[in-house]
Design a binder for these strands. Structure first.
Length: 425
RNA sequence: GGAGGCUUCGCCUAGUCUGGUCUAUGGCGCCGCACUGCUAAUGCGGUUUGGGGUAACCCCCCAUCCCGGGUUCAAAUCCCGGAGCCUCCGCCA
């Protein structure tokens, strides 16, 4: 959510941001108009109400004719107060509704454009020369089936498309990734959290997932609740309606939860295997910081993601996501894209966003500093989206003999094994 | 699923039956000042949040007693609806 005062002072900034996102610019003017109506009817209400209050003190003490006269005046005043109150409520409701539709202001350095207009920030690690090793990269389903690790056929029978059973080494690999990710985050000072995966509408609305992203969210009609697509939602809402002392910041949490995504609008995309699924496990980093610290925190979250991917021995690149592909809450977003040899390209494995004060305003998470309260900034970053990371590991670390190399960092959580081996079927 | 209870300005709490003097009581915590040979004790003062007025401060105005609606000149208080939390019973990993 944008701050109305800032919007009044600099509406052009917000207009430019809407334009960069390819979103409604006119919204800004409708919002300003509604806000103006809210302010004028509000001050009229304040004046009438003050007068009504004065009368309220006089009436109990008055007698006879004087009292009757006061009551008559109070009667007409009461009607006027109700009118002004209704006008103010109506204007406020409209302003609030419009405000919720407005996306975060885009950081000026963000490349303008759509999904393909990102800029590459850096490339990390050398890509293995599979050809030189005499390997034609097999895809993760091929490998996963040979390892007895992934079963999507039976998952389709039981749950439908885009679901998977992880079994045997696959199930162990999932647990190893979760453990290793939580270990890294904890060592970095994050508070590990296992979060609810089911949330009330306010948490979903407050994190900005009920805008354009709404079609991708599972809604439980009967319970007026949503399945979260990321633990960013319960983590952001964790401090909802709270005021945090400035000296408590930064607050950093590492959330572990299942993630549910309808993947509407991605028909025909990544249909093979477990690259894109309706349910997966994820370890997510989440930070509450002062607005002044937000940009530096984004760099830190990116560094932790790079550390993680490096420890998994995966080559990757970092992209600065373009304005049209940011999502409602982010002002800036970096994706880490790992190399998927079977696809022959880089694909997103982690993503970190600076949401500035957008979510904090909607969820009313504030900080107190020097006796004043103001919104703080929230940021999130993937540490490990497990299913897709499994895809990356299987594909990138496959060996000529069909086994898969296990990175050092995961071995303690896999009973020390150095390879995943094909199983007899 | 059934029954009952609760929700007041950080936490606890008075007030609700009997509407106005509630500008919401008191305690704890916290902040400031005073005092004492010392970070303790004591005393005094301050301490909800949001919006608006103001360049900003001081200050002033309005709202805010879980939320919404109603009754009334007037609602923390009365009426209706809703939410949340708790306890017990039932069921359950």
């Amino acid at each position: 959510m944008i701050d109305l005062r800032q919007l009044r002072e600099n509406p052009d900034l917000v207009r430019a941001s809407q334009r960069a996102r390819g979103e409604d610019v006119d919204l800004v003017d409708r919002l300003l108009a509604a806000d103006e109506r809210r302010r004028s009817s509000g001050s009229r209400f304040d004046e009438l109400r003050a007068e009504q209050k004065r009368l309220g003190k006089l009436i109990p003490r008055a007698e006879g004719d004087e009292k009757a006269e006061l009551l008559a005046r109070a009667g007409t005043l009461s009607a006027d107060v109700k009118t002004a109150d209704a006008e103010r409520d109506e204007a406020t409701a409209e302003a609030d509704a419009l405000l919720l539709q407005l996306s975060n202001v885009v950081h000026p350095a963000v490349p303008v454009g759509g999904e393909d207009d990102y800029t590459v920030r850096e490339t990390v690690g050398e890509i293995r020369d599979f050809a030189a090793e005499g390997i034609t990269p097999r895809d993760h389903m091929d490998l996963g089936q040979a390892l007895g690790a992934i079963d999507t056929e039976r998952a389709a029978k039981v749950s439908g498309s885009r679901f998977a059973y992880l079994r045997g080494q696959g199930a162990l690999l999932e647990l190893a990734l979760v453990n290793a990710a939580i270990a890294q985050a904890t060592a970095a000072g994050f508070v590990p959290m296992v979060t609810p995966a089911l949330v009330r509408p306010r948490a979903m609305e407050g994190t900005g997932f009920l805008g354009q992203a709404a079609q991708d969210v599972y809604r439980l009609e009967q319970d007026d609740a949503y399945l979260v697509g990321t633990s960013e939602v319960p983590l952001a809402a964790y401090h909802m309606d709270e005021i945090i002392e400035a000296d408590q910041l930064p607050l950093r949490y590492a959330g572990l939860s299942p993630c549910y995504r309808r993947e509407a609008g991605s028909y025909g995309k990544d249909t093979k295997g477990i690259f894109r699924v309706h349910q997966f496990t994820k370890v997510e980093m989440f930070s509450f910081v002062t607005p002044e610290e937000a940009e530096d925190e984004l760099e830190r979250l990116l560094d932790w993601e790079k550390q993680w991917l490096t420890s998994l021995e995966l080559p990757f690149r970092v992209i600065d996501v373009a304005s049209g592909d940011l999502g409602a809450s982010a002002s800036r977003k970096y994706d880490c894209e790992a190399w998927f040899p079977a696809q022959g390209r880089y694909r997103e494995l982690t993503s970190t966003s600076n949401c500035t004060e957008f979510q904090a305003r909607r969820l009313q998470v504030r900080m107190r500093e020097g006796g004043r309260t103001r919104p703080l900034a929230t940021l999130n970053g993937t540490l490990c989206a497990v299913s897709r990371t499994i895809v990356a590991l299987l594909e990138y670390h496959q060996q000529a003999d069909g086994s898969v190399h296990v990175p050092q960092v995961l071995r303690p959580y896999l009973g020390g094994r150095e390879r995943l081996e094909p199983v007899a079927r």
